[in-house]
C-alpha cells in the first residue's frame, strides 16, 4: 500500500460512487436467509449515510432476475459517464464447470447475464463485489476496463457460504479500515480489511480457510490475492471511494491557503518518493529525512487548518 501511493501521486481525483445496487439472493434455509438479508440491510444503511447516493437493495423474494435486471436498467438510464456504480452480490453461487450463477428466486442469473446488464451502464468507473460462494468463477465474465471486480472466493470450487460479506460491511463503518487516514474508505481498503478479517476468523476458529478473496481492476480476468505495484493491481481500487470524503476542493481558498495546499501536496509527493527509495537508503538517514518532511507537512497542515 505504501509504494502504491507513489503510483497514485499523479493524483487520481477521488470520486464518490453515485449508484449502488445490492442483491441478496436466495438463502435456502432460514439461517442463511436471515444472514443474507441482514448483511444487505447493513450495507444499505452504510451506503445511505451519503445523502447523495442512489441506493437500491433487493433481497428475499424481491430479488428475482427480472427485478435485478430492472434495477440495473434503471441505473443505466440515470447514470452518466462521470458517475460511478457499484454492485454488491450476497448469497449462494454455483459453478457447473462452465457457468457461474447466483441463486435467485426463480431463474438464476449467470455471470455473463450480469455482465451484459452491467455493460449497458454508462458510468466509466464501476465496482462489482461478488460475495457469493463460487464467486471466483464469475471474474472472467465480469472483468472489463474501468471495472473493479472483487470475488469472495478464488474459484468456482470454493462452495461454502463465505463470511467475506460480513467483513465487507464492517469495513464501511470501522474506522480502522481507513488505513491511510484520509477520511474515506476505498474499495482497496475495504477489500484488504475484509480479506484480513476473513483470514483471522478461520485462524481463530482453527478451521481450514474455505474462501480466498480475489481482486482485479485491470480487466485481467485472473484476480490476485494481494494487489500491489509489482502485479499491477489495486491502483483503480485505491481511488474508488465507497464512503464519500468531504474535500476542501469545494471551498474557495485564499491565495495564502492555496499556496499552503500546494506546499502540502509537494511535501506528500516528496514523502512518497522517499518511501519508494527506502530500501536503498541507510536506515538512520531515511528516518531523519522522513521525520523532517513529516514535521514540515504537519506544520503546513496546521497552517491550512488555522
Amino acid at each position: 500500500m505504501k509504494t502504491l501511493l507513489l503510483f497514485m501521486c499523479a493524483a487520481v481525483s477521488l470520486q464518490a460512487a453515485d449508484y449502488y445496487v445490492t442483491v441478496a439472493g436466495l438463502g435456502g434455509d432460514p439461517d442463511y436467509e436471515a444472514r443474507f438479508v441482514k448483511w444487505a440491510q447493513d450495507l444499505e444503511r452504510e451506503l445511505k449515510t451519503d445523502p447523495d447516493a442512489h441506493v437500491i437493495t433487493l433481497s428475499g423474494l424481491g430479488a428475482t432476475r427480472q427485478q435485478v435486471e430492472q434495477a440495473i436498467a434503471k441505473v443505466s438510464s440515470e447514470a452518466t459517464e462521470t458517475d460511478t456504480f457499484a454492485l454488491f452480490l450476497i448469497g449462494h453461487g454455483t459453478f457447473d464447470g462452465t457457468d457461474y450463477k447466483i441463486n435467485l428466486p426463480g431463474p438464476d442469473m449467470t455471470g455473463a447475464q450480469l455482465a451484459a446488464a452491467l455493460n449497458r451502464i454508462p458510468a466509466r468507473r464501476q465496482l462489482v463485489v461478488n460475495m457469493t460462494s463460487c464467486s471466483g468463477a464469475s471474474l472472467a465474465s465480469l472483468t472489463r476496463k474501468g471495472r473493479i471486480v472483487i470475488s469472495a472466493t478464488k474459484s468456482g470450487n470454493e462452495k461454502n457460504a463465505p463470511v467475506f460479506a460480513r467483513y465487507w460491511v464492517d469495513a464501511l463503518h470501522d474506522p480502522s479500515a481507513d488505513t491511510d487516514k484520509n477520511g474515506s474508505v476505498s474499495a482497496l481498503e475495504a477489500f484488504r480489511y475484509a480479506d484480513r478479517k476473513t483470514a483471522a476468523y478461520f485462524e481463530s476458529e482453527k478451521l481450514l480457510a474455505t474462501e480466498h478473496a480475489l481482486i482485479t481492476d485491470t480487466a485481467n480476468p485472473t484476480g490476485v490475492r494481494d494487489p500491489k505495484p509489482e502485479n499491477g493491481q489495486g491502483l483503480l481500487a485505491a481511488s474508488f471511494v465507497l464512503i464519500r470524503q468531504r474535500t476542501e476542493s469545494g471551498k474557495a481558498l485564499s491565495p495564502e491557503k492555496q499556496r499552503l495546499v500546494s506546499k502540502k501536496e509537494d511535501l506528500e509527493a516528496k514523502i512518497d518518493r522517499l518511501k519508494y527509495e527506502k530500501a536503498a537508503m541507510d536506515e538512520t538517514d531515511y528516518k531523519r529525512q522522513l521525520t523532517a518532511l513529516l514535521l514540515e507537512l504537519a506544520r503546513t497542515q496546521a497552517e491550512i487548518d488555522r
Binding site: 487516514k181 506528500e268 487548518d305
Partner: peptide, 13 residues
Amino acid sequence: ALEAAPGFKPAQQ
C-alpha cells in the same frame, strides 16, 4: 504512524 498515513492529522499534531 505518519509513515503509514502522512495525512493522519491527530498524529501530525
